[in-house]
Every structure is written in C-alpha cells, then in structure tokens.
C-alpha cells in the first residue's frame, strides 16, 4: 500500500518536471515597481495575441531591473530613472513610456503652487511650517521614499540639491505615500502621476499643473523616462515584445492606464 503511494508520488513529480522542461518562448521582465502594473497588463495582452508566449513580470525596483538584465536573470529589465547608472552602459535601453512625478499634499491644505526652490527647502528641512510656503500655520510632515527608489532618485535629481531632512517619514511604495498624505493634513509627498486620485491633491510646480498635457509639452518639470533594458543583441522574441509595447496598441494601453507615451 505504502509502496503504491510512493510510486504515485514519483509519477506525479515526473509529470510536473516534464511540464517544466517544455521550454516555450518565455520572457521575464523585472524591475521598476512603477512600471510593473503596466507591464503586467501589456504582457497579458501580448499573450492573448501570441498564445505560444509566456511572459513573466516581476517587481523589485529599478536597481533589480538593471542587475537582472545584466546577469540575464531577466531578458528585459525595467528602470524608471532620469539617468541610468554607469553599470547599465552595456545594455541597450529603449524608452517605452514617460511618467510624471506629482508632488502631493492633503486636500485640506490650501497651498496650490510651490516653486522648485520651496520644494527643495521643504525636503531639506529648511521650511518646516506651511505658513512659510503660503499655507496655514501647520507643521510640515515630509514623506519620502526609501533610498534607491527610482521615484526618489528621479525626484532628487530633477529638483537637485536635496539632502532629505532626518524627520522625514519613509514609505516603501507609491500607494503608502498616497495613504500617508491622505491621512495627514500637514503632509507633503511625491508619487507617480498615474496614481493620483481624489484623496490627495497635486500642487502646481512653478505654476505648471501635473497633467498629461503639460507633461507631453514638456512644461512640467518632474518627468522621468521608463526604460526597458536588454542585452546589446536581444533575441527575436524579446525584440518582438518591445516592438509590441512601442506599437500604437501597446502605447494606447500605456496611456489609458495613466502613463504618458514614449513620443
């Protein structure tokens, strides 16, 4: 009886391992958590039109995207940085979308416009009260992302000269930044423009709204590109996937879900 059970176990294991061995066209995308939801949607569409393909999408952050494209752990790395780090110079990079970074405050806050200088001073801790930035007498709670985050790196590179104040709250995702700012009347944070909703308010930066139009016309300052990184000579399958993302259909999906198209 027990022996039978063992045989059964082995045969089941065999069937499973056989299933793994059948290597169909499998592509892995890894990296930027900002682009991850879009990549998942695109992968889903791609797989519907190409039934043979298997696309896996993993997060991990931009640094992971670069690392895994370099090591080959993923065929395509995703990175959302303004400037790619030097170790990515051997990779071929394609801009597939652009993303605005919105500076957000609580809707109860009467401030509507901040200058780049004010944002720098707030995140540096030089301005500690909203009344110094045209608001009510309320302490500012600075909310930022963790060191290494693509959004934070881009934000700090564009605003320049930020040395984050020690009191700043650190949240590990766009979503938790949104929750924190929505719950704290004195908070200021920044997040991907695609994730704005009615619970938070995006401020104008130097008089420019954070809208798709202003980002397209390059009037809005805080914009970062989203790169797909591959080895210098990507395989035909990988190239087909990237071409799909750049195709009108892929770009339309990107735009419908809140990102801005590559061109």
């Amino acid at each position: 009886m027990k022996k039978k059970a063992l045989y059964l176990l082995f045969s089941v294991a065999l069937v499973f391992s056989a299933g793994c061995g059948k290597n169909k066209q499998s592509i892995t995308l890894a990296g930027s958590t900002a682009f991850q939801p879009f990549a998942e949607k695109l992968a889903e569409q791609y797989m519907t039109s190409n039934p043979g393909a298997t696309i896996t999408v993993q997060g991990g952050g931009s640094a992971v995207g670069i690392q895994s494209a370099l090591s080959g752990a993923a065929q395509i790395g995703m990175a959302d940085l303004v400037n790619l780090p030097p170790e990515a110079k051997d990779l071929s990079a394609t801009v597939v979308a652009r993303d605005g970074i919105a500076v957000v405050i609580n809707p109860a806050n009467k401030v509507n416009n901040l200058t780049t200088g004010q944002i720098r001073d707030i995140f540096n801790g030089k301005i500690k009260n909203w009344k110094e930035a045209g608001g009510a007498d309320k302490t500012i709670t600075v909310v930022s992302r963790e060191a290494g985050s693509g959004t934070r790196t881009s934000f700090e590179e564009i605003i320049t000269g930020i040395e984050l104040v020690g009191e700043a709250l650190i949240q590990e995702s766009n979503g938790t930044i949104r929750e924190t700012v929505a719950n704290d009347a004195g908070a200021i944070g920044y997040l991907s423009h695609g994730l704005l909703n009615e619970k938070i308010k995006a401020v104008q930066i130097d008089g420019q709204d954070c809208t798709t139009e202003c980002i397209m016309t390059q009037k809005y300052l805080l914009v970062r590109p989203i790169f797909l990184l591959t080895k210098a000579q990507p395989g035909a399958e990988v190239q087909r996937m990237i071409d799909y993302i750049l195709s009108p259909e892929g770009q339309q999906t990107i735009q419908q879900n809140g990102l801005i198209t590559a061109k």
Partner: peptide
C-alpha cells in the same frame, strides 16, 4: 514612519533594524 534618526521623543518616527533591511533590500 521609518525616519533614520535617533528619536527625541516617543512621538517621533523611527526606523528599526528589521525595517531598514526590508525597506531597502529591493534596491
């Protein structure tokens, strides 16, 4: 709240060792 700072009072945000690893390992 995860601020890297020695807390001055119980109402200030702090970051623990475990939080430090979990927050930054992805990058």
């Amino acid at each position: 709240g995860n601020s890297v700072k020695i807390p001055g009072s119980a109402l200030e945000p702090v970051r623990t060792l475990t939080a430090n690893i979990a927050l930054e390992m992805g990058y």
